[in-house]
Design a binder for these strands. Structure first.
Lengths: 252, 252
DNA sequence: ACGATACATGCAGAAACGTGCAAGAACAGG
DNA sequence: CCTGTTCTTGCACGTTTCTGCATGTATCGT
């Protein structure tokens, strides 16, 4: 039994069961309670669990989720998300798109930020439940499984009834000529509807998306305030984008 | 049973039921009343509840949301969920309420069931994303943190546009005279709106809810097709419910 | 006013904790 | 290949914390 294995096992238990009892784990794994306690102490020191008398509990559902995902979410997305989250001022209303990058933004929002978040993604709504000061508004509609967001006529219609200071959009492709593109027509329409309801629209695009294009156009460059990316601002492609008058926010 | 678990359990009870009776909790959890009293005293000292003679009350609705969610589904809820899931026929449209019991139902639905699920809970929508044959429709609106569902005027209005074969409702209290009740007026209205859009409405109620009542009436017995519970069908209270013409589905 | 119930306090046994220590494994350098 | 170092692990010990019971007091309902 490797130490790292034990650690993973403990984190797994925290995620699945919501708690860890030191005594039980020790007997299950055939190791001493002291080792379990040591591991829990270390995990707690890293902020990955909350130590309590007799065992440990998850820090909070969302934080644990975040920590677990952090290893998965590539560095680029995390940096993009951090820059995007910093755009949200206290009191702002934010329209947040679906997708993994937008989820990273949700998780990067300060825990006690006073704001309104409007989203068509149940995943993102669920992720923000533990932000006590965040007012959440969910745009309903038919859920598109492959992207896990509400799209279609009902969702677009629901979007007409909201407005916000800032819209953060994820896209599939960012290309100097093709513009912002995505793979599904309904999603593209939904993103357009979202962008139309915000004073400013910023696009989230980790570097691997720059220079690629998908089938459906989302927005022309004129409707976009800026692009948040971890790509090199001096890259030729990025400079072509800047030539369209798009502000480039570097998340290097 | 970790001390911290007890604490969470108490906070959860405060959130869901609106009160804690020291004696009941002690016998439910198999611990001494002294421990319960000590915990309540500590919680009160931290401002997390208001101590009263015989138990405790929530200090405010907002603080209550905190711990409700991460407790693992007890056996009773799982059995209720299994019976409820079996009511859903292939091809059916199902309206699924929010709450932990409804979440258990979602998780109990067969992975490849062909059906439509309509819900106002982002948590439940997220939980059903991995059911490839389930068509999901999300009812949007303002998210009520304390129960993690969309409620309010927008959500009720969205509900007017759907219809289904079956509605599965969770409630806080089930009482022969008071009927089905819940702790929040908006939630009660939302549940009414959901039930009105389905041909049949079944209520999910694990045994500890039988005989209790909260502040706001959800539905009269006439509008309810049946009650799914793990309580003993020969229990006096349950038989009183059956006298109202409600079908009792035992999940013993 | 009375009995019943809930409460606070003190106490003792049990459980969990932290620390120091020694045996063993993994590793780096000679 | 050997040796010294470092890290990990389990055990022992003393300390702290928790829990349930017993006692006496306060509060509630009748």
């Amino acid at each position: 039994m490797l130490a790292a294995e034990r650690r993973d096992h403990l984190l797994g238990l925290l995620a699945r069961e919501g708690k860890v009892v030191a005594k039980d784990v020790a007997s299950d794994l055939g190791i001493s309670e002291d080792s379990v306690r040591r591991d829990l102490r270390d995990l707690a020191a890293e902020g990955l669990c909350q130590r309590v008398y007799g065992g440990a509990l998850p820090v909070s559902p969302a934080v644990a989720d975040y920590a677990a995902r952090q290893s998965v979410a590539p560095d680029g997305k995390r940096r993009v998300a951090a820059v995007a989250a910093a755009l949200v001022r206290p009191g702002n209303a934010l329209i947040l798109d679906g997708g993994t990058t937008a989820l990273a933004v949700a998780q990067a929002l300060p825990q006690d930020l006073v704001c309104t978040v409007i989203t068509h993604s149940p995943t993102i709504a669920a992720a923000l439940l533990d932000h006590p000061q965040a007012e959440l508004f969910l745009l309903g509609g038919r859920i598109f499984k492959h992207s896990a967001v509400a799209c279609g006529a009902a969702a677009v219609e629901a979007a007409q009834n909201v407005s916000a200071d800032l819209c953060l959009l994820g896209v599939t492709g960012v290309h100097p000529e093709a513009g912002l593109t995505t793979a599904d027509a309904e999603e593209a329409a939904m993103k357009r509807a979202l962008a139309a309801r915000a004073a400013e629209t910023y696009v989230l695009a980790s570097s691997e998306k720059i220079g690629t294009a998908s089938r459906f156009r989302v927005l022309p460059w004129e409707k976009v305030s800026g692009l948040i990316t971890d790509a090199d601002p001096h890259d030729a492609l990025v400079e072509q984008l800047a030539a369209h008058g798009v502000e480039i926010l570097a998340a290097g």
